[in-house]
Every structure is written in structure tokens, then in C-alpha cells.
């Protein structure tokens, strides 16, 4: 168990190092460097700035320098926002994204799982068709389409909800729905098919043969088995919410990290792009590790050590 966690951590670190190196290279071998695009900077000033950000030094020196700061958790300064570090930006923006993301994840789970179960229990009947209809639409509708449609109808046309910015609970509703659309649909389908499979299993017959009431058969014998694939989906779910936030936060002008990330891409604020990417990677790798550790609690067949071979 302990060995396994250590191995997983080391492995995650290796993956992270590769990611850091590749993204660092991408950001630094861009011809002309990050300040080339600024309009008509006098040569001397440009040199000056480059020296400040150590861009005049050889690549490997910059890389080692970056890594040594990274180990201390320092992601460096922003090129665009003078006086702001990447850490400042994350500290300021990320809580907003967490708030939005959490609402979206909860929405996806609490809407997706029950509707999947409902559909499975009424296979080929009205509830099933209803759930399958909406989940199919959810899968085919990119978040920006859901988001813009919501915005057009709910705020422009009917004036029910504020169209942009952040602050009150009403502001969360539309972006959270837009963000949760695809994962909800996916979880509903996943739960449905896994529940259908479970319902046809022999042990469900045993449960009936024991004379258990329907409720107990479903909730204790069925759902605990059916939920296992959903747990495996938690990692990708967080990743999806995170990348989805790039678009949704932009549409609704939510001052989160996702919006800032996209702005940095527009502005070619390379240290921020690099830093935030690394931050996201750490976050996701950590989340995946967490899911892996939770997994054996739900499925006693999986011992931690075996889990990896299975993937």
C-alpha cells in the first residue's frame, strides 16, 4: 500500500517533469521571444527587459533557473502584468474557478447519476428515452453553444439572470449549467449502461431470492456496483471541468483562472501560460492520485498494487 503510493508519486513527478520541460521549451524557443511583438520597443529598453527576465541567457541556464524556482513553488513573474507574479494571479483567480467548478461537478454528479439509474430501471420506456435524448444532446453540444444559448434566452430575451460577471449566486447558475452539460450527459450514460449491466448480474438474482425489498436490492446491491465506473470517471471529469472553464468563464466574463489563462494566450504572456499549465497539471495529477486511492474503498476486489496493471 505505502509502496504503491510512493511509486505512484514518483511516477507522477516524472510525468510532471516531462510536461514542464516540454512546455518550457515551447514557450522559450518561440522565435523572437515574448517581447518581440510589443510595438516599437527601443532596442535598449528591450535588452533591459530581457535582462530583467533573464531572457538573454542561454536556454539551459534559464531552464535550470526556472526549475529551481519551481521546486520552491515559485512560478515566476508575469510578462504582461508588471509587478504581478504567476502565483499572485493564481491566488487571486483560482478560488473563483474552484467555486464555479465545484458547483458544476456537484451538478453533474447529482443530476447525472440519478437520471442514469432512472433510465436503466425503466429501460426502453419513457424515462429512459427522455434521459437518453437529453444526454445525447448534452454530448453533442459544446459548452460554448449551451452557454451562449442560455445567455441569449435567459438573460437577453427573458431577463431572468445576469449575463455576465460574478458575485451573487445568480451569477453561478448559467456558467455552471454550461460547464456541467457535457459531464452530466456523460455520467448519465455511463451510469445507465453500468446499472443495466449490474441489473443483469447473477448476484442481483441472489438478492431477489433472499426476499429483499426492491429498495434494498437497488440501493445496496445495485448502486454500489454501478457507481464504480463513475468513480473512474472522476479524474477525467475534473479535467473536463477545468478545460471547459476556459470557454465558459470567457462567455460569462467570470473572473476565474480559466479566463485569465485564455487572456494570457491572447496577450502572449508566456510565463503565465507556462505557470498556469504547470499548475493545472499538478492539480490533475493530484486528483487522479486521489481517485486511485479512493477506488479500493468502493471496490474491494481492487488492491492498490493491482490497480496499475489493470489500466
Amino acid at each position: 500500500m505505502f509502496n504503491y503510493i510512493v511509486r505512484r508519486l514518483l511516477y507522477s513527478l516524472a510525468a510532471l517533469l516531462v510536461v514542464v520541460t516540454v512546455t518550457f521549451l515551447f514557450m522559450h524557443i518561440i522565435p523572437g521571444g515574448p517581447f518581440q511583438r510589443e510595438k516599437a520597443l527601443p532596442e535598449a529598453i528591450r535588452k533591459n527587459i530581457e535582462a530583467r527576465y533573464k531572457l538573454d541567457q542561454p536556454l539551459h541556464i534559464q531552464y535550470i533557473d526556472y526549475l529551481s524556482h519551481l521546486i520552491r513553488g515559485d512560478l515566476g513573474p508575469s510578462y504582461k502584468y508588471r509587478g504581478m507574479t504567476v502565483n499572485d494571479i493564481i491566488r487571486e483567480r483560482f478560488p473563483v474557478s474552484v467555486e464555479l467548478g465545484t458547483v458544476a461537478i456537484l451538478l453533474a454528479l447529482f443530476l447525472g447519476i440519478p437520471s442514469g439509474i432512472l433510465a436503466a430501471l425503466h429501460q426502453s420506456k419513457f424515462p429512459d428515452y427522455l434521459v437518453m435524448f437529453f444526454s445525447t444532446i448534452g454530448i453533442a453540444m459544446p459548452s460554448f453553444v449551451i452557454g451562449t444559448l442560455l445567455m441569449y434566452f435567459l438573460s437577453y430575451k427573458w431577463g431572468l439572470l445576469p449575463s455576465a460577471t460574478w458575485g451573487s449566486p445568480q451569477h453561478v447558475i448559467m456558467p455552471a449549467i454550461a460547464l456541467a452539460g457535457l459531464p452530466t450527459a456523460y455520467i448519465a450514460r455511463l451510469t445507465r449502461s453500468s446499472m443495466l449491466e449490474v441489473l443483469s448480474q447473477d448476484y442481483m438474482k441472489t438478492a431477489i431470492a433472499k426476499g429483499l425489498p426492491r429498495r434494498r436490492i437497488l440501493w445496496v446491491h445495485g448502486i454500489k456496483n454501478a457507481i464504480i465506473p463513475v468513480v473512474t470517471y472522476l479524474g477525467p471529469l475534473v479535467a473536463g471541468i477545468l478545460t471547459g472553464s476556459f470557454v465558459v468563464e470567457n462567455i460569462f466574463a467570470v473572473p476565474g483562472l480559466g479566463k485569465h489563462y485564455v487572456t494570457s494566450i491572447y496577450n502572449r504572456d508566456y510565463t503565465v501560460i507556462l505557470g498556469v499549465t504547470i499548475f493545472y497539471c499538478v492539480l490533475l495529477i493530484f486528483m487522479n492520485l486521489l481517485v486511485d486511492l479512493v477506488y479500493p474503498l468502493i471496490d474491494p476486489r481492487i488492491k492498490l498494487a493491482e490497480r496499475k496493471e489493470q489500466v
Binding site: T206, N225, D299
Partner: peptide, 12 residues
Amino acid sequence: FQDPMTYLNPVL
């Protein structure tokens, strides 16, 4: 039942 492998619930 016939197959004690599949007739017991694996997660309980």
C-alpha cells in the same frame, strides 16, 4: 445457485 462466483455480490 449454480455459480457461487457470480451469485455473490463482489462489493459487499
